[in-house]
Write a protein that binds this DNA or RNA. Structure first.
Lengths: 238, 238, 238, 238
DNA sequence: TATGAATGAGCCTTCATTCAT
DNA sequence: TATGAATGAAGGCTCATTCAT
């Protein structure tokens, strides 16, 4: 299973953008082309996808294992051949969701920004990709970000750790900008990073609310970017 | 019950902080044991509090009505004398939570900011009060903000509507600043408002994570405020 | 409480047509004008009436004591001051119902028929009165005749005993006709009596079905009477 | 499920005595353990039988689903695999009961009577078979005839409809006799049919009362038959 | 291996009954 | 005396999980 605490190492590397999203239970070497997903692996994947859909649609507690089985087109017992319990299945579903989110965040570009312009572009890029995902699967995101933390404390901790890691990445990223001189010196990068992370939230709410037109989305991304730029650069800049 | 769609009217007015949630007790005169005026209200309140605690602790779906009853120190049947169903009880719990949040947000000051300094002060104030509440009752907030939207669509809509209303208030507030000239003209106030609202989130996460020291809290509030100030004022300002 | 096994003595006497229907818990002398029903008695009566209505409407099991209390306009606890349990209340309700049925059956006339014509008239009379009651309160009758026997064995026995008693009365009545010569000699009066009793059933069903027009009712009474006349008299008669 | 409104068509035809209540098992071919054809049907039947017994014994409202499960020797959950609710189970129980009653009524012979003697024989036959059933399972009959109508209005309507249909059949049967001249012309066949139907009741009561000796039963059938004969034929016959 | 039948713990809810006032 | 608040036993029903085939 994907160990979320490791994402700190995975994400910045950003070279493994094409890792097959099957994720979780792959105990095999991640390098090289996984020659062919075994039948069992494909079943697992199929089940995780179905569980994603079903949990996202009805919520984890409300959804039943037989809903999942039905959605996957298998018998109920079969689910238990691949996942020992509902809870464990959820873990995999969340891994799947987190993986997709991370792919969206890191998607393609892996370069460190070298100037404010670079940064601005990257922020816009991340925002765009994230909102695309959000609009494509608002329920999945809701499941991962909102509902999961309500299941139990372990999950809550994991999710919070994820945010922490992302913020830490962002902060170290900003630190470079500060050292390089194109970000204002007195920036509390850690806190700014948390703040910036949180600004996806409105896009998310927009999508949940269902009034996420392309125009509104663009407006929000523009506003967000310029806002952040001003905030990061400080008053002395043009 | 608090009608959330009315908060737009309630919040700015800010004078009716103590609206009773359930209306006055019926003063009918009858034979037999007098219904002990106020007892019902007290019980209702006691139960809502217990339900708050229990739902926040275990999650709405997972918590059982008998947990609530046990927590309140009454028999299970008693809960049903005051709330016809688990779902209805949740509604009241959420009302309670939203009310407390709104009180925190609007707390005390009701004046329109007349300058950037005013605004900055107000933002700090709101942030402070909110974080105080968050730290006092992180679970309640989690319940209201996070979990509720996963219960059903009606609740999701209500919560989203709440955010929308708050943003609209904030936006119209900013509009005045733009018109008065102390905020930059090209501000997309609506989007900025959404973005600003979302910036409570890190404070919230901090509290959930449990590492919300006074020092970190202060750092976040400071960063947030200055960040917002720069963003709102634009580059031309000192 | 009315002891149903005693009705055999009460009914043929048929002189007490005006006994106040309060029935059940009257442990006082039934002779003479019961000077004034005590307040308690009136309450009991009021409760029995309400229980009649409520039990008849929803069925005994389905109806709740608080429905009864509400219908009577008293507190729930009050019901228990007059009847120690729901079951006991039912007993009184049934007594009330049976009493009304018996009054309908015996209503007014008390004379022994002296000829086939008399008998025919009496049968028509009984049928008419019974159907009037049935149409006025089909639910009460359903309660007494249909539902009660499903409550428990004691009640079942009581109801069956009631039918038995009525049949016995009817049989001894017919016996006189046989001895007097205006009924055919080979009549198995006991069985005939049972059969005749059962012929109220269709009228009852008619009423339950709701299509009991005056015309249909008349047709049934006529048919029934003539049918019985032929059956009783045998072939040798005109 | 047996559609009671169709019994008018089913009964006279009398050739489809074994219509399966639930339809054929779906013959799909799948992986995994084969669904063991017929098992479901057997379980359903077993459960209906148990439910019959339990409902008849304690009454529908009073009996609990776990009583039924216990009687059938299965877990409570199992009952719900076959019937979605207690009410639905009752429907099947009643279908079962009605079916058995109809089989008793129509049993074997399907011929239209051609003379009074035929009719007399048929009536005796029906009565005999019915009483045999009644004595074998008085509780089932009580459930079907007595208690069911107290459950809810839909059931009441269905039962009344059943009686109506039977009477209509009987009436049309009698009509032929009138046209053929061996029944008196002025017979109100519809009402007579209702009346005749109701005459099973005493046999039923006899059984419930528990004093249904063979001798008494025979006496009642004889009396009933002769009584009806006189009534049908009228005074002009020998 | 895949299946679905079987299960029972546990949930929400109702209601007859008790009892302090 | 009348009341209604309080209660807990019990019921219908769901569903995660097990297991024989």
């Amino acid at each position: 299973m994907l160990n979320w605490s490791l994402i700190a190492y995975r994400v910045p590397a950003m070279e493994s953008a094409s890792t097959p999203t099957t994720g979780p239970a792959k105990p095999r070497a991640r390098r090289g082309r996984p020659p062919e997903l075994g039948l069992a692996e494909r079943r697992r994947h199929q089940l995780v996808e179905s569980a994603c859909a079903v949990f996202a649609e009805h919520g984890y507690e409300t959804a039943s294992m037989s809903d999942v089985a039905k959605h996957a087109g298998v018998g109920q017992g079969t689910v238990y051949r691949y996942f020992p319990s509902k809870r464990e299945l959820l873990d995999h579903v969340l891994d799947h969701g987190v993986e997709r989110m991370l792919d969206a965040v890191t998607g393609g570009e892996a370069t460190q920004a070298e100037s404010l312009e670079d940064l601005s572009g990257q922020i816009s890029g991340i925002a765009e990709r994230l909102f695309t995902l959000i609009e494509a699967e608002p329920n999945l995101l809701k499941l991962v970000l909102v509902e999961a933390s309500a299941i139990d404390d372990e999950l809550k901790a994991r999710l919070l750790g994820l945010e922490n890691t992302l913020s830490a990445m962002m902060a170290s990223y900003l630190d470079k900008g500060v050292r390089a001189g194109w970000l204002r010196e007195d920036l509390d990068t850690e806190m700014v990073a948390h703040g910036m992370n949180s600004m996806v939230v409105p896009g998310f709410l927009l999508a949940l609310r269902g009034d996420a037109t392309a125009e509104r989305r663009a407006r929000y991304v523009t506003t967000l970017t310029s806002f952040v730029m001003f905030g990061l650069r400080g008053p002395e800049a043009a």
